[in-house]
Design a protein around this nucleic acid. Sequence first.
RNA 1: GAGGUCGUAGCUCAAAGGUAGAGCACCGGGCUGUGGCCCCGGGUGUUGCGGGUUCGAGUCCCGUCGACCUCCCCA
Length: 433
Amino acid sequence: MKFQSVRGFKDWVPEEFIRYEHLIDLAKAILKKYNYQEVKIPILEKTELFIRSIGEVTDIVQKETYTFQDRNQEFLTLRPEATAGICRMVIENGLFMRPKPLKFFTIGPMFRHERPQKGRLREFYQIDVELFGNLTPWYEVELIKMGLKILYSPLKDLSEDEEIKNLFTLEINSLGCEKCRPNYKNYLLSSLKDSQNLLCNTCQQRLERNPFRILDCKNPNCQTEIQKLEPIHKFWCEDCELHFKELKELLEFLDLKYVLNPYLVRGLDYYTRTIFEIKGKGLGAQDTVCAGGRYDKLLEELGGPFLPAIGFAIGIERWELCISQYLNPQTFLERLSPQVFIALLGREQFNEGLKLAEALREADLKVEVLYEEKSLKALLREADKLSSKKVLILGEEEIKEGKVLLKDMLQGTQEKISLEKLIPKLKEEFIYP
RNA sequence: GAGGUCGUAGCUCAAAGGUAGAGCACCGGGCUGUGGCCCCGGGUGUUGCGGGUUCGAGUCCCGUCGACCUCCCCA
């Protein structure tokens, strides 16, 4: 094999693409019901945008971005996530003047230079959802509910199955706000300083850079130290505590199961208060399918007005890995096969076949024609391989009579039918069944 | 970025240092007016790539690229 795709970048062949398309269609249908507006933002942004939003000392910015200089020596970065770009869009286009809340979503590839493994690619697709303009937990609950709805949407027919009911689990936490978060940070710093040499090497570095990340370290030594600490909720201010209490009550009100995870933290600096992750089963080490939270200060920090916001991102490939085993392959077959296959018996029929195919396509039918001199047997074999439901046989005899032979490939039946009656008949079958 | 497992035909996988194979798929034919089934024929290959050891390497060694797993990190 001469060429291989770049490490961590993959092709989507038709069978894979239709799965992607199917999931996107389901997600979009739900997003529309919540009145989210689809937008598109560039894949490339100035590096500075990500440094300012995600945080200069985060791992993502420090070692995972595709950053390079263009021909004008300007530093550019392939987006590792979409929130920063959406915020830039809101500010640059003055969208913050519009009625609140602003509700946007975008679907597209993100890029992170990490070691690839199952459920982790260097180019991966996200459904990114953002809501701007409100501080209350009602919007958070609605957003979380919508996220879960999207994730479960491909499995709607199987929703009674116990295994499927628990395919995704919601974890929540609050990081506190600008008032109370520093207290917890200081507490972490002072109490972990004493046991510093018991922590792993990376955590000793985290102590300097981002002490919150120590909380979700998997190293057992670090975990024993972490267990000794006071949990984060002891440090929340009154407002943050109330906010989180209301959030939990609302989740219960909607019968949404959740797990409180006081050690849940995020790899991006911009989050405040509520954060959440939805984890999927069967993914191995990379089990977070959806993650998000509140980022009230970000727009302001990027030079816009104060506009509190919440959002999440779904990793489409991970989502697909979770649910694909439960999906019926038949669901996708239709997207790949023609509705009508036209079998032309001999070169003399090619012109008529071309005309007929165009007429059927004008009538919104999906049509395949082979302009090849093959036996009827061979042509039917082709139609069978493509899983075409109907075959139109067009030979010398039919053309003379102004008719075609319409064959049903599932039933094996066939009838001779005039050209005038053909389109209404096929429409009845495929378009208004 | 660290450690580990693996890499043979389009796909799934054999070949335990001695002639590169099977099933499925694919192509041609039986079969120019009827698909699925069947029969006959065809191996379609730079054994990921590059070196080395050896009389001889798919097999052993080194490097490299890629996939997967763990760590890191994250969607």
